[in-house]
Design a protein around this nucleic acid. Structure first.
Lengths: 201, 201, 201, 201
DNA sequence: AATGAATGAGCGTTCATTCAT
DNA sequence: GATGAATGAACGCTCATTCAT
């Protein structure tokens, strides 16, 4: 209840989906290494040995969580800019979408993506990095679009890193029950990027 | 060479200091949970059992690393604003100092502070939080000073969180051997905070 | 090709027969303990759970393999001495038959019989021992016949054990594609038993 | 008591030695796969985790057992032929020594050597094979010496295999408390090899 | 202070077996 | 008969911690 329902495609009501949701939450709360397969199994209501009918290793659960959440949020990014041509509005859409991912519906898994990265095998890191590259390319295309309209000062690469820092850190302080809304925070961040109040436009 | 010498007071050439330096590096490279006491002992050149003459538990080593680095960087923050009264220059000093902490000399331990937080016992989290509060108060005082000079738009608390995000994330991408210097990055961030190019003033 | 077709009665083309053949081969290649029911099921093309419609436990598969191969080779022994009255020729027949069992068509299962003996339950060991007793009696009768013709020196029991050693160990070195034939080896062993070159007679 | 004291050099009263003796016995009684590290630990009177201060893996215990027993029995073979020049007496010495190894003081470990071979890693199989080659060379040299004195009919390689079969199988039937002594059995086997009663010499 | 063997709880994983479909 | 998800006990192994020396 207080626990928002995960809406990632691969994390549905199927046994596998419930398993991934539970794992994502536990990985975020306790960390990957401190979460035992027995913890996950208990959460899902099965025996620990049964986990291995769904995933060959514990690390594969982590890998699946990360893959699902990146794919889902890449799609969210696409929809955020679909049908919008104004570069500022596209950027605003991306920021909102990323905040939604980090402090909204997929926050557990997104946190895991940042904090448990090194728990992936090198092989899986490489695969997951390839997925992230697609996600990041959407950002870079949008920022370059912004620049070609003269609305971006500075290096797009650095700007993207600063945005990543601002959005990803928000998971550590944003209070979903506080006064600040995600949209308001998005506008505050947008202002830091393009250097003016967007509501004046 | 590539390995910067740690300069934190409590992490000096004494057995305890070398132990903390080694632990900080290993915790950052492998994570706290994946670093064994044997790893640390080997690095320092003693047997694993001997570690426990210096620290009662492995977690206490983590606690000590975090405490040392916070105390050291709090002092660095103090020196960064000492003797400067211009609020923008004070802010610039803080940003520079924090970047220095995160991607400069104390980067190993700072990374540990962020990524291994939940490996602390609740008790130690509370104690460490108290140290961070002192550190954060220096930031809040400076930001409020900035506001009273009319140089800050928006909520100081939120601004500080955005700065924290930008600086802390830089450990994931800043290249000490690249073209961008710490001072340049500090100015770029400063610009995002006060909304104008500072060097043009 | 290199894999000789098992010809044991109970190991025919029926599902049960194919299962026993596959199990015999796997037990010999990997050992009983290292062969999983999934290995066997995969070989036969069914799911592991379906094995248990044919055999109540994995150990029962081993028991069945052993029973089948002993019964088959006991019959082979009988045929080897059927219609022959010369005691030396009878002995030669037994040796040839046992070598055929050990390094010829039933070699997989015979190897299992030796190497996986202790994987049988005590109960099944007893039952299987009773089958072996019949097999061994054919040997003892023949050896006593040899003695009554004055062609055997020494204790028949010991002689039989020495023959068993020579024949059973041959599975570890005999090369079906080498120069030595089974019949030649049989004569060499025969010579060790009756103390003279049989072909010179 | 009924359990003969192992006398292999590396299996002495040290913790490591007692561990190897216990492991050899359990491996022989139950097989390597069915012997748990907890079984071994219990036998030695330590906790299961403590095993791993002595050997990195369970398989390394097996490897050590095999290495120790081969080295010990190779030395025994050497002493059996030392100072003897008569080829028949040398052969008799080897047979006695091998029987002593198989059914006497090192019988547990020798049995393991035969029955648990495939439980070794391929790497360790190779290493152990190299040790066995030294052992076997002593046999081949002696058999060739016998041939050069005109006392050996047949292929030395095959003869050695037949001897190996006779001696190794004896572990399955020889009764240390029965009427037959090891020396008597050695002479019976010797007779099978050189084709005449040795006591007539 | 330092050693290093020992502890023992706990880990990820395996696998023969069961059973609802 | 066949399926395949689930079971649950047991496995080899790890590692922070202890303690006699």
């Amino acid at each position: 209840m207080g626990q928002s329902q995960q809406i990632v495609n691969g994390m549905d009501d199927s046994p596998r989906g419930k398993l991934l949701s539970a794992a994502a939450r536990l990985f975020r709360e306790q960390g990957f290494d401190r979460t035992t397969v027995r913890d996950i199994a208990r959460e899902v209501g099965i025996q620990s040995g049964s986990l291995f009918h769904h995933f060959p290793t514990k690390e594969d659960i982590l890998y699946a969580v990360m893959g699902e959440v990146i794919r889902f949020n890449t799609e969210r990014l696409r929809q955020a800019i679909a049908g919008t041509h104004d570069p500022v509005q596209r950027l605003r859409g991306l920021i909102r979408a990323e905040l939604q991912a980090i402090i909204g519906d997929t926050r557990e898994a997104m946190s895991v993506l940042v904090y448990e990265w090194r728990c992936l095998t090198p092989e899986h890191q490489k695969d997951t990095l390839a997925l992230r590259a697609i996600y990041e390319q959407l950002w870079m295309d949008t920022l370059e679009g912004l620049r070609s309209h003269g609305r971006l000062r500075g290096d797009a690469f650095i700007i993207r890193r600063l945005i990543t820092g601002m959005t990803s850190w928000s998971s550590n302080w944003f209070d979903a029950h506080g006064n600040l809304t995600i949209d308001q925070l998005a506008d505050i961040i947008l202002e830091r990027v393009i250097g003016e109040r967007t509501e004046d436009a």
